[in-house]
Computed example of a mutant assay.
Amino acid sequence: MSQFINIGYGNIVAVGRIVAIVSADSAPIKRLVAQAKEEARLIDATQGRKTRGVIITDNDQVILSALQPETMATRLETQKE
């Protein structure tokens, strides 16, 4: 059975697919997001809010979230317990 993590505003992601959760502030991540958008691999789950966290999945999808990476990591850790 798949486990999911809430990434904010009713959006969920399969935990088993997550490779990394990173901050959206750095230039390399901004380039990664731009490239994913060009290649139609970007999923915007911010609900129109500022992007604070970026989730990278094992199938090369890039997911934008309005939550901080620390918040998502905490949710992931509490879910495992």
Rank of each mutant, 00 (worst) to 15 (best):
M1S: 10
M1L: 13
Q3L: 15
Q3W: 15
Q3K: 15
F4K: 14
F4I: 12
I5F: 07
I5H: 08
N6M: 07
I7W: 13
I7R: 13
I7S: 08
I7D: 04
G8N: 09
G8S: 05
Y9R: 12
G10M: 07
G10Y: 09
G10L: 08
N11C: 13
N11V: 10
I12R: 14
A14F: 03
V15S: 02
V15R: 05
G16F: 08
G16L: 04
G16A: 07
R17D: 14
I18T: 06
I18Y: 07
V19L: 10
V19T: 11
V19A: 05
A20K: 10
A20P: 00
A20R: 12
I21D: 04
I21E: 01
V22K: 12
S23L: 06
A24H: 13
A24G: 14
A24T: 09
A24F: 08
A24R: 14
D25Y: 06
S26M: 08
A27K: 13
P28E: 03
P28D: 03
I29F: 05
I29Y: 05
I29R: 13
K30F: 02
K30P: 04
K30E: 09
R31G: 01
R31K: 14
R31T: 07
L32M: 12
V33T: 06
K37I: 01
K37E: 12
E38R: 14
E39G: 00
E39Q: 13
E39M: 06
A40W: 09
A40M: 09
R41M: 11
L42F: 05
L42E: 09
I43D: 01
I43G: 00
D44E: 08
A45P: 01
T46A: 12
Q47D: 11
G48I: 06
G48C: 10
G48Q: 08
G48T: 06
R49E: 14
R49G: 11
K50N: 02
K50A: 10
K50Y: 02
K50E: 13
T51H: 01
R52N: 10
V54W: 08
V54L: 09
V54Y: 04
I55A: 01
I55W: 01
I56N: 00
I56S: 01
I56Y: 02
I56K: 11
I56R: 10
T57I: 03
D58Y: 04
D58S: 09
D58I: 02
N59P: 00
D60F: 08
D60L: 13
D60N: 14
D60Q: 14
Q61F: 08
Q61K: 13
V62Q: 03
I63G: 03
I63Y: 08
I63V: 15
I63M: 12
L64W: 02
S65D: 03
S65Y: 11
L67W: 02
L67H: 04
Q68R: 13
E70M: 10
T71M: 12
T71D: 04
T71W: 09
T71F: 08
M72N: 05
M72F: 01
A73G: 09
A73F: 11
A73M: 15
T74L: 10
R75K: 13
R75H: 14
R75E: 07
L76Q: 03
E77D: 04
T78D: 11
T78G: 00
Q79A: 15
Q79H: 14
Q79W: 07
Q79I: 09
Q79D: 03
K80T: 04
K80E: 05
E81I: 06
E81S: 03
E81V: 03
